[in-house]
Simulated scan of single mutants.
Amino acid sequence: MQHQSTTHDNIPASPFAGEAPDMFFGLPMAMARAMALRGERIGDDRAQVRMGFQATQANSRGEVHGGAIATLLDCTLAAAARAHDPAAHGVATIDLTLHYVAAGSGDLIATARCERRGRSISFARGEVRAEDGTLVALATGSFKLIARQPAAGS
């Protein structure tokens, strides 16, 4: 069986490279540290996020728990929904549908694309793959765009 590459050179490099572990594509998100999420690429309506394996997020078989995979997909699809201007927008998840395809172990890499962006609602789809290219899960979701308020003094 041939596996698709987990690197996506067509997604621009993140302008937020090297950000603190509690930041996620320019926005403060303490959960990013807790879930070991690292935003790797964002732009052109696409995003790529890596979730580092943590034994505390494993199921009874030692594989990544489905809830952790759901969090990874939610965050990655949400990032794609705001990829047109990541520092200017946050999002709220309206719905998220997941399909688990295979067990995942080790670091997982999610990629997502915003398929349609309206004035306030965006629709995205994405996938999670293991580092060896094995497809782990698929997802679709809709997200409400929320304009970020400029920091005081800006």
Rank of each mutant, 00 (worst) to 15 (best):
D9S: 13
S142F: 04
P21N: 09
M31I: 13
L77N: 01
A110V: 06
A32L: 07
D107K: 04
G26L: 08
G39I: 06
H8Y: 10
H3F: 13
E19Y: 06
S60F: 05
I69G: 00
Q2W: 00
A110F: 06
A137G: 07
L145V: 12
G118C: 10
P21F: 08
R148M: 15
A20Y: 02
D22W: 03
G106I: 06
G62M: 04
H3W: 04
L108G: 01
A124P: 06
Q48T: 02
G104K: 02
A112L: 10
D95N: 15
A34Q: 11
I121Y: 07
G106T: 09
L72Q: 05
R117W: 08
A78N: 03
S122T: 14
F53Y: 13
D74V: 02
A137M: 07
A55P: 00
T76E: 05
G133D: 07
M1Y: 02
R33D: 12
A68V: 02
V101T: 12
F123D: 01
A110G: 15
M35L: 15
A34S: 14
S120C: 07
H99D: 14
A81H: 07
H65N: 11
F25E: 01
P28G: 08
P12C: 06
L37C: 03
G52S: 10
L145K: 12
A80V: 06
G141A: 11
A13W: 00
G66T: 03
F123K: 02
T93Q: 07
D74C: 06
F53I: 04
A20L: 13
L138V: 14
I146R: 15
A78F: 01
H84I: 03
G106C: 09
L96S: 06
A124T: 15
F123P: 02
A124L: 10
Q4K: 11
D95V: 04
L37Y: 09
G104Q: 03
C114W: 10
T71Y: 01
E115C: 14
A58I: 04
K144N: 08
E127V: 06
T140A: 13
M1S: 13
F143Q: 09
A102H: 15
R82E: 03
L77W: 05
R113E: 15
S5L: 09
R113Q: 14
L96A: 05
R113V: 15
R125V: 08
R116T: 11
M29W: 11
D107E: 08
A92Q: 11
M23C: 13
L108Q: 03
A130S: 12
S142V: 08
P15W: 01
V136I: 15
A80H: 04
G39R: 04
A70D: 02
V91F: 15
A80F: 05
R119I: 05
V64F: 01
G133S: 06
L138C: 11
A34F: 06
A36W: 00
A87K: 11
